[in-house]
Design a protein around this nucleic acid. Sequence first.
DNA 1: ATGGCGTCCGAGGGACGA
Length: 254
Amino acid sequence: MTVTTWNVNSIRARRERVLTFLERRAPDVVCFQELKCVDSEVPREAIEALGYQVATFGQKTYNGVAILSRLPMEDVVRIQPLVDDPQARGLAATIDGLRVVCLYCPNGGELNSDKYQYKLAWYDGLVELLRPAVGAPLAVCGDFNIAPADLDCYDPVGWAGQTLVSVPERERLARLMSLGLHDAFRLVAPTTRQFTWWDYRGAGFDRDEGLRIDHHLINDPVVRRLNDVTVEVDTREGKEASDHAPVTLHLRDA
DNA sequence: ATGGCGTCCGAGGGACGA
């Protein structure tokens, strides 16, 4: 089974790229983030024609997530760590016995902003929300908007303490992983410098100035099935690309 | 210190992203 996570930065603006990706790579499961549209504007029929079931949690203008699956999806639920939160950032489904959680974690804005506090609180809520889920095979996939370590940042000195690498954010990610989750990419590539996001500005991709912020966090039953994690860097190339590359988890059969 | 670039909304430029 392959599980791809990809922040598409607008499924409408990325429509052709997304469909081409699905057709050529044909992952079994896909977690999309930043749909940036309501459910009815997702190109559902075109995706279904490629052999996928589609579950969406959209929102006008901002956020929005989806899970696609070639196999049947069960127990599809929205993931909202904070009560009365209008932001559509999480969706979960069980596929062939694997609980897949698709997340678009908050960006965090400036360090001294309400958005930063929202991000920390959102993570705090997420840990409690996912705590009951770690007893069964679990893969938490998405744009976490946190680079776990300095190796995951092209300029850790220049970025020190900034949003996406700050100590309080990394502590939140560590608390989430303390539920028994492992960074799948780091398991297969302990010392590799590989980014998943590059800024549109300043030719970030051409300079390979990026961050690794898109992750698959998997628990022990899934670690035992882990074959590989690949970053589909070529999908970031060209003028019409999302600023994130897809990241694919490769699992052996259960 | 600020803007770089891309997308959205909606008809201007501002909000937002990371």
